[in-house]
Amino acid sequence: MSSPGYRPTPAAASQLNLRGAVDLSTLRRPASPPASPPAAPPGGTAAAPPATDDAGTAPLRVDANESNFQDLVQLSAQIPVLFLLWSRYAPESPAVLDAVERVVLTYGGRLVLAAADVDAFPQLAQAFQVDAVPTAVAVIKGQPVPLFQGPADDAQIGSLMEELLKVAAANGVTGTIGDGGPAQDAGPAPLPPLHQAAIDAIEAGDYAAAAAAYKQALLDQPADADAKAGLAQVELMARLESLSARAAESLRELAATEPDNLEAQLGVADLDVSGGHIEDAFNRIISFIGRNFGPERDTARIRLLELFEVVGSSDERVAKARHGLARVLF
């Protein structure tokens, strides 16, 4: 059985982007979610106190804030997390927040509600590209899933939750919070030794050692998809580590003036992926492959396949790019 995937997740709300931004720095932390979502800290927003499930064992509603946002996003690898962005200045917010909480509580711990007061946590509205509240956005495996904006009743919300749970199940996110659920387990299963060694190396900032651990894991088990994805992500992190903002700007200028400069095109593609401009990155490399032949073309193709691993093979943009790659290759 494979270990939990190491898809990048945002380290702060300002780094979450609906275009699929990839915050590579969060690979410094294991992708395993906490056993239960964190409760709001003392002194949190009084208008949105945390709630508990019927058994009183685990919170099914928490206040999203800067201190627990990362944990909530990590939790989304186990359970869909529904962010409800609201404001006391938006008259519809209280009713929608109450309705969403009622619906979430009926699912017996299969969903977690994160109530986000945009007045107290404005970065989240910017990160989700929200221009009005209330707005509901779910997160599954660190990826945002827009749901609705404005008023909604219990029936409408319930219908959306059914669809959301189908999407979650298709992505292997089927955990629960409460009696009999993962919240009462001793904890997440330990990572395989080489995967743990890679995570430890990332924590220490030693990307070369992390890459070596993932490569050894692939030698031992060539079909280890998590090691393959982890290796691609770590190698991208290493390439970006020493690139300053000024160097990045110069690289973009070079790529614009020299469209057949392989290193410039690949470098800008790395920047685009790390900044969430996934389709731009893929199209840049595919266009290069379509214009060039020989060793450089194959180098570009291999890099594109590595970036597919970084984004995730189930992402629809990867599927679209695969078709584009096939068209220019054949």
Rank of each mutant, 00 (worst) to 15 (best):
S3T: 11
Y6E: 15
R7F: 12
A11R: 11
A12V: 03
Q15F: 09
N17F: 09
L18S: 02
L18G: 02
L24S: 04
L24M: 12
R28D: 11
R29T: 09
P34A: 12
S36W: 03
P38S: 03
P41D: 01
P42Q: 11
A46G: 04
A47P: 06
P49D: 03
P49M: 07
A51D: 10
D53F: 09
D53V: 08
P59Q: 02
P59M: 03
R61W: 04
D71W: 05
P80E: 04
L84S: 13
L84W: 04
P94L: 03
A95E: 15
D98C: 03
T106G: 05
Y107T: 10
G108N: 09
G109Y: 08
R110W: 06
R110K: 14
L113D: 05
A114D: 02
A115K: 03
A116R: 03
D117V: 08
Q123I: 05
Q129S: 14
V133Y: 00
V137K: 05
V139N: 02
L147N: 07
A152K: 06
D153K: 11
A155G: 13
Q156H: 13
L160F: 07
L160G: 06
M161Q: 01
E162C: 04
E162F: 11
E162S: 12
V167A: 13
A168T: 08
A169V: 09
G172R: 04
G172E: 02
T176A: 11
G180I: 01
D185E: 11
D185G: 13
A189D: 15
A189K: 14
L191Q: 00
A197G: 02
A197S: 01
A198T: 00
D200S: 01
E203W: 02
E203V: 01
Y207N: 07
A208K: 13
A209C: 03
A210I: 00
D220I: 10
D220E: 14
A223I: 09
L231D: 02
V234K: 02
L240A: 06
L251N: 03
A264I: 01
Q265W: 13
A269K: 09
D270C: 15
D272Y: 11
V273H: 14
I278R: 01
I286D: 02
I286P: 03
I289D: 06
R291N: 14
R291I: 09
G294V: 10
D298A: 14
L307A: 10
L307T: 12
V310C: 08
V310I: 10
R317W: 08
V318H: 09
A321P: 10
L325V: 12
A326N: 14
V328P: 04
L329A: 15
F330Y: 14
